[in-house]
């Protein structure tokens, strides 16, 4: 891994990094990856997933939920006429 990889990952994750941060992250990641790669030595074959959790469906019908529209609106960083306001995408 090199600085270019860190820059690419930061771009994908939408995080800005200073030059110093890039260097220290490179060092940290090298150490962590070196540690975690030991899992490669485990020969487990293909263990089928067994999930206790099952997909849960519910009837598609109207139900009452208690929410305060006002409280939700207040959490928007910016809003107009009761709508969330964001920058133009295109």
């Amino acid at each position: 891994m090199d600085i270019k990889d860190i820059e690419n990952l930061a771009e994908l994750a939408k995080i800005e990094l200073t030059e110093d941060e890039k260097k220290s992250l490179l060092k940290d990641l090298d150490g962590i990856l070196d540690y975690v790669k030991q899992i490669g030595e485990v020969k487990v074959g293909d263990i089928e997933a067994e999930y206790r959790s099952k997909n849960v469906w519910r009837e598609d019908k109207l139900e009452e939920r208690e929410f305060s529209k006002d409280l939700i609106l207040k959490q928007f960083p910016d809003s107009q006429d009761g709508f969330l306001k964001v920058k133009k995408i295109l």
Binding site: D5, I6, A13, L25, V36, I39, V44, D46, I47
Partner: peptide
């Protein structure tokens, strides 16, 4: 940030199987 970057790496194309999939098997 460190964990987001690390997570982005282990999920990225080319490394996904060696890290994430193998981790789930183990």
């Amino acid at each position: 940030r460190r964990r987001i970057i690390l997570g982005t790496y282990v999920l990225s194309h080319g490394y996904y199987d060696a890290y994430y999939n193998q981790a789930w098997r183990v």
